[in-house]
Design a protein around this nucleic acid. Structure first.
Length: 638
DNA sequence: GTTAGGG
DNA sequence: CCCTAAC
């Protein structure tokens, strides 16, 4: 019998899927970036803080005025720095009713185009218009969605153009040859943005550096200071079977959720890792009320007309702690820069137009004025912004919770559709602000717990919630933001094939996805689950693994998957016993079909033969067992 | 927490 | 791989 150890050390060595390097976010200083990066770089967090202030300020003006011109104002407010600085846009939209786009201000010429765009965009634009119009509303909703972002982007673009046709390309192109390619396409069309959705990514990319953006009321520009999140990759061991995914999964799916309930040992996590997602989801479903899962894309949701109050409640997303982790890392391992191979890696540029901020729960009397509503929202936003925030990354609607994951693994690469990428800002803690209405319902509490509970120490290196950890007070933002780093750069290595130990850095250029606050109707359906879970990356079984599996099943029998796991895959944390069971299932199937019908890495026929043999044997065995059991029961009955 | 199966 | 029902 082959011991798992032997298998792993020997056969699996090298055969196993390469260890996926933890995606270190290398903290890059402006020196990394060329030239004027300082100008262009933005510290999201800092930005947020600024945004909050601005929001407040703006709110006042807005509230008093009806916004026919509001839009213009927002856009206009392009600080001088605007050109140089990247912007973070946070938009709060109040949706009253579907209104015809015509209403909107002429100032938003770009929007019109947007309206013509695909549904989403169109929708967003309409909403935007509404907001601007500030017409009386039965209900208000804050919408956060990509579409909206798109719209915004267009605005930004326009402005950029107005500002002087800044060519965004140059700065980017120099640095990121490849990433730029895609974007370049968009660049061309930026001006005609309205026509195509796909352009957005491109647009986003560029906008950041030089353009200033404007958005209805909530658009704010702020200089971005780059925040670097250096990450150490030391943990990655190629020889280790389980890749970071283990940590990923745990972190992504289980940790945040689990920790809320109790601390667990790593082993516990392992086992739970799979279960958590679904469980969590279930919980989420129950929390439906709270709209915990706010759909990113869904964006606008209308309130029930009958509702007397408008609730904007904070939506707490589970993976708060992930961000924190990053911060920790950054503070600790700044030397990581060296590791990053800037030379060989492809860079992925991100243009962050805005962040999706947690949903708010606000109560406003029906009789309240729109202005007061705005104020309330503003307060809520401000409260959030003042709290500790974490950045979340959403790819194709799924949150990437594993900080160790590489961009490639997460599907963030030059090749990926940047449009599917989004960043979110999550409150580390529901700092109850006065205006935030905290429901006493269990669901709400749970949410809070989820968001609050500190990560367990053993898991990600001891990331504690900033809210709880004195060391990580709200100042986190300032600390990082205060740095002169112009932009956050993450480099992504293009080559996927070989495990890379160095960190990859993504260049965080201005905006990519714009997410905004969203007001969700209480009655709305919960968001899709994918917001909370992320499918594991596919990791085909290597021949060595198959061999180990076959061997284990031969000796233990099919069905004792936990034992099989412990026997042959105990160290492969990315292989659960369910995985092994599934693999066996596929192996049996594979062995049963014609070779030409098989896909993937060919499995030696002898192994397949063993599979069939073992399958036949254990099937028979099982049948016998059943027969015995049956007999026994019948005897008992007699 | 495990198994067994369908998706 | 995911999700779940059934243990």
């Amino acid at each position: 019998m082959v011991l798992k150890k032997r298998i792993y050390d020997g056969g699996f060595h090298g055969l196993l899927a390469p260890v996926i390097p933890k995606a270190p976010r290398s903290l890059r200083r402006r020196n990394l970036r060329n030239k004027s990066s300082e100008d262009g770089e933005i510290c999201a967090f800092e930005l947020l803080a600024d945004v909050a202030d601005k929001l407040l300020q703006e709110q006042e003006s807005e509230s008093s005025t009806s916004s026919t011109g509001s839009k213009g104002k927002g856009q206009i407010s392009i600080p001088e720095e605007g050109f140089k600085n990247e912007l973070l846009e946070v938009k709060v939209k109040v949706k009253v009713k579907p209104v015809v786009s015509e209403h909107h201000d002429p100032a938003s010429g770009a929007e019109n185009e947007l309206v013509a765009q695909p549904t989403n965009l169109d929708h967003a634009s309409k909403e935007l218009l509404h907001f601007e119009n500030d017409s009386g509303s039965d209900h208000a909703s804050i919408v956060t969605n990509a579409d909206f972002q798109k719209k915004i982007n267009s605005n930004l673009i326009n402005e950029a153009g107005n500002l002087g046709n800044v060519d965004f390309r140059d700065s980017i192109a120099e640095i990121h040859p490849k990433a730029i390619e895609k974007q370049s396409v968009g660049l061309t069309s930026v001006k005609t943005y309205g026509l195509k959705d796909h352009l957005e990514p491109c647009v986003n990319t560029r906008v950041p550096n030089k353009s200033s953006s404007s958005v209805d009321l909530s658009l704010y520009k702020d200089p971005f200071h780059s925040v670097c999140f250096p990450r150490r990759r030391g943990n990655v061991n190629r020889n280790i079977r389980d890749d970071d995914e283990k940590y990923f999964r745990y972190n992504n799916r289980s940790i945040a959720r689990l920790r809320a309930f109790r601390s667990r040992s790593r082993a516990g996590y392992k086992r739970m890792r799979k279960m958590m997602p679904s469980r969590y989801w279930k919980v989420a479903q129950k929390l439906k009320d709270y709209e915990l899962l706010n759909s990113t894309s869904g964006g606008v949701k209308s309130f029930s007309h009958k509702r007397k109050n408008i609730y904007m409640r904070e939506r707490f997303q589970a993976d708060v702690y992930k961000k924190r982790k990053l911060f920790h890392q950054s503070s600790r391992h700044s030397y990581n820069k060296n590791a990053s191979s800037e030379s060989a890696s492809n860079l992925v540029k991100f243009s962050i137009k805005s962040f999706k901020v947690p949903g708010l729960y606000v109560e406003v009397p029906e009789t309240a004025t729109v202005g007061s509503l705005k104020r309330s929202v503003m307060e809520a936003v401000t409260a959030i912004l003042h709290g500790n925030l974490h950045v979340g990354v959403v790819v194709q609607g799924k949150k990437v919770r594993d900080d160790n994951r590489t961009l490639q693994q997460s599907g963030i690469s030059e090749n990926c559709n940047l449009e599917t990428l989004g960043f979110t800002l999550e409150p580390s803690l529901p700092e109850a602000s006065p205006f935030l209405v905290q429901q006493e319902t269990p669901s709400f509490n749970m949410l809070q717990q989820l968001s609050r509970s500190p990560s367990s120490p053993d898991i990600d290196g001891g990331f504690s919630n900033s809210s709880r950890d004195p060391a990580f007070p709200a100042t986190t933002m300032e600390n990082h933001g205060g740095k002169n780093e112009v932009s956050t750069t993450f480099t992504t290595e293009v080559t996927t094939k070989e495990p890379v130990e160095d960190s990859k850095a993504l260049v965080l250029v201005p905006a990519l996805d714009v997410e905004v606050l969203s007001v969700v109707p209480l009655n709305e359906q919960p968001t899709k689950r994918y917001e909370f879970s992320q499918r594991r990356t596919r990791r085909p079984f290597s021949v060595s693994e198959v061999e180990a599996l076959v061997e284990a099943v031969e000796t233990l029998g099919a069905g004792r998957w936990r034992d099989v796991k412990m026997r042959a895959f105990d160290d492969a944390n990315h292989r659960t016993y369910v995985d092994l069971k599934d693999k066996w299932k596929t192996l049996v199937h594979t062995a049963s079909i014609a070779p030409h019908q098989r896909r993937g890495e060919p499995v030696p026929q002898d192994l397949l033969d063993r599979v069939l043999a073992a399958h036949a044997y254990w099937s028979q065995h099982q049948a016998k067992q059943q027969a015995k059991k049956h007999q026994k029961t019948s005897e008992a009955q007699m």
